[in-house]
Every structure is written in structure tokens, then in C-alpha cells.
Design a protein around this nucleic acid. Structure first.
Lengths: 353, 353
DNA sequence: TAGAGTGGTACGCGTAAGGGA
DNA sequence: TTCCCTTACGCGTACCACTCT
């Protein structure tokens, strides 16, 4: 049984009541062409009276544009991706676009996630949307989005900007900067708690770390074990350590750093007395950890804004320009301190194993 | 200059190529009516060959349904609302719905936010959507959504379930349970760090706290100052304390608890030795705070799932049934401990003022 | 002749309804 | 009952023609 019986008012209803043709109403909304001031006022009154709202679905049939952009979030909505979404939606509102969203979980088998991603993209194309924004660099993602790219512009937030010089692949200097900070504090045994290697961001940060260590002539020490970006992964990585052979750690993000710190505290080790640690993201809680976490702030909202503008640009001109990279300032807090002689971390074998 | 020239294949293109009418293709997709197995196979082949995807905008014109639901998020995307969104989108995928989202910031003046909310709703109605899901209980929100309600079902996530008995208004027992936990540990001077009073959730939790205190014959102590749900608000509330006259705190959510704990630590007070503290949400980081935070877990993903199902239900039958309330288990961690005699918190006047 | 202001018609892409074999 | 077709829409927009200053 259809719950709604009263038909929604159409443009024809408005036109009839005002005493003009639908064309005039259409021009009133589009801004293209002439409508006299007097007619505008009368239209506005009738629109208000009837509660008329133009039907975008109908309009998009004839016009080529739907005013809708699909956003595919790959992975759980953590602090960063939620912020990106906020940035996207603020920018979308500013430019009058609607946002269609879908989420897919990448951690459930390569074939599974590809299937879901394909379905989500088809959902977008069915809407239809004018462009698609995705945040992923999973294996095989290009294949998934290649088909969509023939229909609409696809903006990838995680696309690694390919530099011409393979030796210096990273305009994003997050990993490098974080490691440099620790080195400048005098630390020499600096480990890196690497994020999930399925994500480009994790690979970039690792590369930055390795570059900084190589430049300093130091042996890198990569701590494995994170399968996602969440705190339990950081805790698990800490649990895998038999001995602790570093005085400083650069963690792939704040969550990992938190989980890691928490487990080391269980072993009696606290930052910054016993070791220093840096995160990435500057999530709002990071400043209130115990100790407050030194981290690299990433302006996710700005990333979202830039991505949406790039999408609109691509829709309007067909031109794909690479996403600019925002500033990524280091926020120094209490979790990092200069290396002290006799710092207890060194070969403190834990009793865990 | 239009960037795309090649027209997207239409249902007519598929029909022509298969050698049937568009009706047959339509039936192939809708499942209504008969299409022979042989024809199905041929259609599938052509669909695959052309990369055809049905245009939902076109279909929704004649059919009354668009298969799209608008989701209006009020406030920043914190852990909880992001999880709700995840739950919504998972359920939406399961039922074949698309999700259109918008965000509005409620903390920018009543008139401002109402204006933005109205615009967002109009955006949804323009799409058009089959239903709208909102998460708000801001003052004046009913007025904003009343107009939309005449067009489509509106599901409000934060609508306070009105009990018949005004004496026991809260099926949601979060505030009550959290306070009871502290009382059962022997605490008598239990304070409540209240969340932003513009949100129903904050009011509900405060009411639960007040009820538990009244039942125990104890004087309530409400700590004001939180203007949002984030950690800095909790820190600000702690900074406003001249003297500390409690041995336990029930914080409106985990973020507030974290900010509060952080500032008290700055004054030399740590949980659970010096005071106990409970949060709400069980965000994934809460288990890794120092100390790990006792909190009430809220299944946000489940809330999202239920809301989407309620929306679909309302679309199909016009029936609005209230949202069921999920389990809200207490997760006991290290931030709460039994009241000890001589617990140092009592009249420890701080030197801040 | 140019520009303001408006209307007529065809069309975009599917679905509902109903008929025919 | 199975299978398919024809016709009439749904609601705006593109395109063009028209009038009047």
C-alpha cells in the first residue's frame, strides 16, 4: 500500500499557478535567460506557497549533469577519513553538489573487497553521479575503477603522486619529518611501527623513515604487525617484541602509537623518560594522551576540500590535475625528549616470552 | 566544453542489440514479470558488452521510489556518529539503497544552523530521496523537519523515546548504570561531567545520573562547561574546578573523560588511585588510555542499522515505529576502583585560582 | 538591429498498465 | 501460465521561435 498519495508539486503546477510557462520557472532556477523582476517575485511566492522543490532526477535526464558526486570510503571511518568526509561535504555544500556515499571493507580478502567496490561503483554509475571520489590504494583497485573512469572522472585521494625521480618518490614528507625530529633529539636507535602495508600512506611513511635513516647512516628497524590503523594493532605490535632495542619510535599513526605506548607502560616503560614516540594525524585526543603525543598534523578537512574541488574541476573541464598536498606541521608535545645518557631502554628483555 | 562526448548506453541500446523491447530489459532488472532463461542470458551478455548500468534517475521518474535515503549528520563526525554512518551504509548496501549525506554544524548560532539544516533538507527533497534520517535534537529542529515530514518519512536518531510515566523517562539507562557502578564501588561524592545540553543524549545521561543519586539519597554535583563532545571540552571543565570535592566522576562521554583526566593528571591526580572515572561510548582508544577507561559501550553500528531499517519500513508501509534500543554494557577497566579510606581527593584545593 | 522577456516542442530514460499470442 | 510488445506517461531542460521596446 503506497503510504503517500498526495503528489509532490511539479514545475508545471507552479507555472500554472503563476500564469507563465514551465520554461520561465526553469529559467528562474537556472539563472540562464531573462525573467523579469516582477515575475521572479510572483514565482517565489508560489514556490513558497506550494513548497515546491525542483526534482533533480528529472532535470538531470535532459541536462547532462546530476549535481551528485559519489564518495567511496575504503576502510572503516577513522578520525582521518571522517574528517575528509567532513571536508568533502562542506565543500560540496559550498558548490551545490550532493554527496552519495558508500563504504567498503578492504580487510576481507582481495576478491571480496574488489567485488564490493565494483558493486559500489555500479551503484554510483546507476545514480548516476558526475564524478567519483575514492580513498584507496589497495591492490587491484585500478582495475576496479578503470571501467568507471570511462564514464566519469575518478579522483583518488590516496594516489601516490609519482615523481619523475624514483630516488625521491615522496613529496609527502611525513615519515621523513617525523624521523628527523627523533634524530635531531639525539636518538640513534629509531624504530618504525609501520602501518598496514596495503595502504599507500603506510608505504609512503615507511619510505620517508627509511630515507631519513639512510641519510643519517643508521640501521633501520621496522616493527611489523599492524594490519589496520587502530590502537589494538599497535598493542599487538608491542606484544610481539621480545626485547626492546630502540630509544625512539615513529608510529604510522596516532592510534598505533597509543596502543603501543599502552603496552609498553604495562612493561613499566613510559614516554618520554624511557623512550620517545611520534605519531601521525594529530587526532584531537592525541594532545590528551598520557603523555600528550608528539605527532604530525594532517589537515584532513583540507584534503577533502581539495578533492571535491578537483572533482568539480574535472567535471567541468575534463581536466585532471593532481591533488595539491597540504602543510603537515609537526606538533611537539611531551612524548618526545632528547636522548639521555643511560636511557634505560636498550636491552631490557621483557618477561613476556 | 563538455568533456564527455560518448553517450552512456541506454536501455534502448541494450534492447535493440538483444532484439527485444525495452520492457523486457526492464523486467530483467525488476524481477517482476517473465523473461525466459535464454533471453536473460542474451541480455546479460549485451549488458556486459556495453557496460550498461540502468539510470536510477530516469527510473525514479515514473516509479515513485528513488532508492535513495538522505542522511543529515548534525555536528562533527566523532567516533559515534562515524560508526552510525558505517552501520547505515552497511545496511543500505544490504537493502540496495543509496545514501545521500550532508553535515551541518549546530554550534554556530541557532538561526544559522536552522538555515543550514533547512537547506540540507531541501537538497534532499530535490534529489529526491525516499526518506530522511537525522541525528539531532537541537532546539527548533522539529520545526525544520516538519515541512520535510509532509513529503517523506523522517527518522530521528536522537528522538527521546517518550515514556508514558514521566517519573521514569529513560529507557536508555546509560547515565543511571554508570552512576550505579560508581556507587556500588562505595563512592558517595560522585560528580557528573555533563555533555553539551543542546543534545538529547547529554540530557538523558544527566537525568540518569540524577536519578541514581536521588535514589541513593546523595547530593548531585554537576560539572558544567562542556560545549561539545570533544576532549578539550573535558579539559576546560577540569580547569574550571577550584577545589575537587568528589571521589568519582561520571563523564558524558569518553572524550570528555579523557580531557578531564589529562588535566587532573596535570594537578597530580590520577585514576584510579586518586579518583574513579567512567565514560560513555567505548571508543576503540578508550581501552588504551592511561589508565584504560571504564565506560559504557554503545553499539553505534547497530543504531545505524536499526535506523535504516526503520526508514525502509516507513517507506514501504508508511508505518513509523520507534527505534529499539540496543544493549549498553558496562566495560569495567582500570579507571574505576573501590573507594578507599583516606582517598586523597576530598578538599585538595588546587593552586590554579 | 539588439536585447529583454516569454512560450512551444521535442526529448532524456526508464516504468506502469494493459494487450496479444 | 509464459513470454513479450505497444503505448502513455513522469518532470524538467535544450533549442528555437516569437513579440515588443
Amino acid at each position: 500500500m503506497p503510504p503517500r498519495t498526495t503528489r509532490r508539486p511539479s514545475m508545471a503546477d507552479v507555472a500554472r499557478r503563476v500564469g507563465v510557462s514551465t520554461q520561465t520557472i526553469s529559467r528562474y532556477y537556472s539563472g540562464q535567460g531573462y525573467v523579469s523582476e516582477e515575475t521572479r517575485v510572483r514565482i517565489a511566492a508560489v514556490v513558497d506557497e506550494l513548497g515546491y522543490v525542483p526534482n533533480r532526477a528529472a532535470g538531470s535526464l535532459r541536462a547532462r549533469r546530476t549535481g551528485t558526486i559519489g564518495v567511496l570510503n575504503v576502510g572503516e571511518l577513522n578520525w582521518g577519513s571522517a574528517q575528509i568526509l567532513s571536508g568533502l561535504s562542506a565543500a560540496a555544500r559550498a558548490s551545490g553538489q550532493a554527496l552519495l556515499i558508500a563504504e567498503v571493507d578492504p580487510d576481507q580478502g582481495a576478491e571480496e573487497w574488489r567485488e564490493h567496490a565494483r558493486a559500489a561503483v555500479d551503484h554510483f554509475l546507476a545514480a548516476p553521479v558526475d564524478a567519483i571520489i575514492v580513498s584507496t590504494a589497495m591492490q587491484g583497485s585500478e582495475e576496479v575503477f578503470a571501467a568507471a573512469r570511462e564514464r566519469v572522472p575518478v579522483v583518488n585521494l590516496s594516489a601516490r603522486p609519482r615523481s619523475e625521480d624514483p630516488e625521491r618518490p615522496l613529496p609527502s614528507s611525513v615519515g621523513y619529518d617525523a624521523t628527523r625530529h627523533l634524530l635531531e633529539l639525539g636518538h640513534r636507535r629509531v624504530a618504525h611501527l609501520v602501518g598496514p602495508r596495503t595502504r599507500n600512506e603506510a608505504l609512503d611513511r615507511e619510505a620517508g623513515y627509511l630515507r631519513a635513516m639512510a641519510e643519517a647512516g643508521l640501521e633501520p628497524q621496522v616493527l611489523e604487525g599492524a594490519t589496520d590503523w587502530w590502537a589494538p594493532s599497535g598493542a599487538a605490535a608491542a606484544d610481539r617484541l621480545d626485547s626492546i632495542d630502540f630509544t625512539a619510535v615513529f608510529a604510522g599513526n596516532d592510534e598505533l602509537a597509543l596502543g603501543f605506548m599502552s603496552r609498553l607502560e604495562g612493561r613499566g616503560l613510559r614516554a618520554p623518560e624511557d623512550y620517545s614516540i611520534v605519531g601521525v594525524d594529530d587526532m584531537p585526543t592525541a594532545a590528551f594522551f598520557s603523555p600528550p603525543l608528539t605527532t604530525i598534523a594532517i589537515d584532513f578537512a583540507q584534503i577533502g576540500k581539495l578533492a571535491l574541488e578537483a572533482a568539480v574541476q574535472a567535471i567541468e573541464t575534463g581536466e585532471h590535475r593532481p591533488l595539491p598536498i597540504a602543510e603537515q606541521p609537526l606538533r611537539i608535545r611531551a612524548s618526545t625528549a632528547p636522548l639521555r645518557f643511560g636511557q634505560p631502554v636498550g636491552h631490557t628483555a621483557s618477561t613476556t616470552s
